[in-house]
Amino acid sequence: MDLSLSTETMGDRTIVRVGGEIDVYTAPKLREQLVELVNDGSFHLVVDMEGVDFLDSTGLGVLVGGLKRVRAHEGSLRLVCNQERILKIFRITGLTKVFPIHTSVEEAVAATD
C-alpha cells in the first residue's frame, strides 16, 4: 500500500485527496505536494483524508507544516475525515483544536472562519 495523491480546484479552494498510508516513508510525498501547491499560489487547502488507511505522527507533522505555510499567506487548511481511527490520533495529540475537521468536502469548501 502506497500513498495516492490527487488535486482538484473548487473556486478558490484546492482539494487534496489523499489515499493509502501516511507514515515516515510516504509523508515526504505529501509534504512535497503541499509545498508545491503553496508555492504555486494555492493558499486555501482542503485535505480529504477519507481514503487514508493509516496516519502516524510523521503525517501529523506534515499537516502542521502545511498549516504553517498557508497561514503565512493568510490561507487555510481544512481536513475532511469521518474515520474514528484517524480522528483519534488528532484527538490524543490535541490537534483537533488546531485543524478545522469537516465531515464532507462540500462542507469544508463552504466553510468560512
Binding site: 502516524d56 505522527s57 510523521t58 501529523l60 507533522g61 490520533i89 490524543i92 495529540t93
Partner: peptide
Amino acid sequence: AEEDEMGLAVISGL
C-alpha cells in the same frame, strides 16, 4: 527532537 516528542506523545496517549 520535536517529531521525536510527537511520536512519544502518540504512544503515551495510546
